[in-house]
Design a protein around this nucleic acid. Structure first.
Lengths: 147, 147
DNA sequence: CTGTATGCAAACCTTTTGCAGTCGG
DNA sequence: CCGACTGCAAAAGGTTTGCATACAG
């Protein structure tokens, strides 16, 4: 669940980045949260344990991480920009009621999409990533609640 | 290609919205652009022909349209929020190089996804929308350019 | 040691808000 | 006519920038 510092150091070294305290903390916080957090949210999580870290550093660090391929940006329907430490193929469910983004993992779906993309060619484009974006609403237990 | 005013008026009436000049213009501009524009971009497109329209109105109107289901928000990997007048199932290719969002239409893919979702149940959630988000880069004509 | 990365605070840009006046139904 | 909608301008919110200082390699 919780990533080891050694592993983060490895990732940073691979990317040619200095392993500063802040970078270790930011990566670990995002990874271990297993969520899709904004810079601001991440800052608030980190602050109690690291009161001297600055919000600007969080922004810069996240940008650096994205640039180096350590994390990815998750576009979110409510307009906020969030980040995800998972780099493997997976999908997102956006809940309209709560604004939450949940991961959706399904090997069958991944295989389906991989096969589809192998067949289809995008004109002049090389696919770098694919994800299904599912928008959902909390299911009304009583179907007659509103409609 | 270009939508008729009568049709927009119909949509607005259905949604219970007054057919103001501004709403007609904004909807038409977004629809006819066949692109995924931000409020700001839309404002700039409209301004020459309607110099008195205000940016605030564009924001409010777009929000109202989304609320009423006339258009949808398109989350974009660069953090900007854009809007799309197409409400039928279709997919988006985000080009990392240009920041452009292109539509991707494929009946086969739509069928594939519809079938998949019919089979799978999301726990306690009702699916309102699905779209494949493809991230791509311009294909290097010479494969040895970088890698 | 040296240059990269951080902290701080100001600047910037986008979006929201409140209110008086306007206009569509 | 009346209430919904607009324009304006100010405020809020989130993100970026610049520079002096600190720290990893």
């Amino acid at each position: 669940m919780s990533i080891r510092l050694v592993d983060i150091q490895g990732k940073l070294a691979e990317a040619g980045l200095k392993a500063t305290q802040q970078r270790l903390v930011i990566y670990k916080a995002l990874h271990d949260s297993r969520q899709h957090l904004s810079a601001e949210q991440l800052y608030r999580i980190i602050l109690p344990d690291h009161p001297t870290i600055s919000l600007g550093t969080v922004y810069k660090t996240l940008d650096t991480f994205v640039e180096k391929g350590l994390i990815r940006r998750v576009p979110c329907e409510d307009g906020t920009l969030r980040f995800d430490a998972r780099m493997d193929m997976h999908h997102h469910i956006f809940c309209e009621d709560t604004g939450e983004i949940m991961d959706w993992d399904d090997a069958e779906l991944n295989a389906l999409l991989a096969e589809y993309l192998k067949k289809k060619q995008l004109p002049g484009l090389e696919v770098v990533g694919v994800q299904l974006q599912i928008t959902a609403r909390r299911q009304a237990s009583k179907p007659d609640t509103e409609a």
